[in-house]
Amino acid sequence: MLIRLYGDPVLRKVAKEIDPTSLKDEFIKEMANTMYVEDGVGLAAPQIGISERFFLYDVGEKLHLIINPQILEMSPEKEEGEEGCLSIPDIFEEVPRSLKIRVKYYDNFGKEYTRELEGYEARVFQHEFDHLNGKLFIDYISPVKKRLLKQKLNDIKKKSAEILKEIEKTAARK
């Protein structure tokens, strides 16, 4: 699986809900493997070119598969924390996130969960959830910081365009 980079239009789309039972075990394993190989903590479907509402994350205790998530409540208390993203390599910035959230989602068997998350796990969930809504962590940084990152972001966009050309060539050969 290829990680889609900043500049790829799929990263800015609002993803569609899916049938939770439609995700196959092999696909989930391959996606998880991609996340771990790339040294990620989370990976959302749009980051691999699929505009659907699901993501994976692992904050150290186990792999979580989150399908059709909703954030039901967000605490007004926020905390700044450094974030990075597999789709925006080598850029790390401070981002404010709610300290606690209450969420609802499904697993790949169609079972519904409602959970309270806090701290780092809440941060990761919010980051991955943003991907499903076409939002990236750099959208939270100041215009001044964004200007300072302009060249790096442009370089990532160029690489993204090259990856998209390769994907199109491969698809044309099939």
Rank of each mutant, 00 (worst) to 15 (best):
I91V: 15
I91L: 01
S98P: 06
P76L: 15
N68K: 03
E82P: 07
R97M: 03
P76M: 15
E79T: 08
E83K: 07
E73C: 07
M74T: 08
Q70W: 12
R97P: 03
E77I: 11
D90S: 15
V95E: 01
P96A: 15
Y106E: 04
E82R: 09
S98E: 14
G81W: 05
V95I: 07
I88D: 06
S98V: 08
E77G: 07
P76K: 15
Y105P: 02
L65N: 00
G84M: 13
S87M: 06
Q70F: 13
Y106K: 03
M74V: 07
E73K: 14
P69I: 00
L86T: 06
R102Y: 02
K100T: 11
C85P: 10
Y105C: 03
I66T: 05
I71W: 11
E83S: 06
G81H: 06
I101M: 06
E83M: 11
E77Q: 13
V103E: 03
S75Y: 11
L86S: 12
L86Y: 10
E80I: 05
E93D: 13
P89L: 15
S87G: 05
C85W: 10
I67P: 00
R97S: 02
I71G: 10
L65R: 01
L72R: 07
E79S: 06
I91F: 03
E80C: 09
I88W: 03
P89W: 14
D90L: 11
E79P: 04
D107S: 03
E73Q: 08
P76I: 12
